[in-house]
């Protein structure tokens, strides 16, 4: 997540001071990606160094505010009109774990899948509960923004569960199509002994 781009985009609205930027960011994204205030100030220093923002004087309470330079405005416009790059897929621990679970002897893949599905389902229930609390969220722009971020988490968790269902179905089919796999059977027998021992 680019803190730099988010700060610039917020300053496009109006000049703001550091703590205010953090508050505004979190009102749109909930506590999903918490920002510490130190991170905000470091980013502001860098943005000033790069000529994207400049001091805009103090507000009535003496907070030092920042505003975009022309170059900063250009940067915001470019960010919004450029798709987010999908270079290399980010390393996905779950995909890696399953890929290893089906090949490493003695691992009960079914349990790995079901435990993950249960955990992902619980997360999905939590997001949905947040959505219910957030209500319809169309009266304020910030609430709508937060609702959309929640939906993004919901859809990502759903995709993970669908993928787990798919893995389970494929594994079952693989077992049915290869019934005479003796070594694998022995392996499974070991695994179930291990499980029984636990």
């Amino acid at each position: 997540m680019s803190v730099k781009q988010a700060m610039l985009a917020l300053l496009e609205q109006e000049p703001m001071y550091g703590y205010q930027l953090r508050t505004e960011f979190e009102s749109r994204t909930g506590a999903t990606w918490p920002l510490n205030v130190g991170q905000v100030y470091t980013t502001l220093t860098r943005l000033e160094r790069d000529g994207l923002i400049e001091p805009a004087g103090e507000d009535d309470e003496g907070h030092e505010r920042w505003q975009l330079t022309a170059a900063g405005s250009d940067e915001v416009a470019t960010w919004f009109t450029t798709p987010v790059a999908r270079t290399q897929p980010p390393r996905d621990e779950l995909a890696i774990k399953l890929a290893l679970a089906v090949t490493v002897p003695g691992v009960d893949v079914g349990t790995v899948i079901q435990q993950q599905r249960g955990a992902s389902m619980t997360a999905l229930q939590d997001y949905t509960r947040l959505k219910r609390q957030a209500g319809r969220g169309t009266d304020r722009r910030e609430e709508l923004a937060w609702g959309l971020v929640l939906d993004s988490l919901v859809f990502a968790a759903e995709a993970e569960i669908r993928w787990l269902d798919h893995c389970e179905a494929r594994l079952r089919r693989a077992v049915v199509e290869r019934p005479a796999a003796a070594p694998s059977d022995a392996r499974n027998a070991d695994a179930s002994n291990e499980q029984a021992a636990r």
Binding site: V109, G110, T111, I113, Q114, Q115, G118, E168, A191, S192
Partner: peptide
């Protein structure tokens, strides 16, 4: 096989 992710699971590869 499971309720809310807590109960034990039938073994998948074991049971074609």
């Amino acid at each position: 096989i499971d309720e809310s992710g807590s109960a034990p699971v039938d073994r998948l590869l074991d049971e074609p």
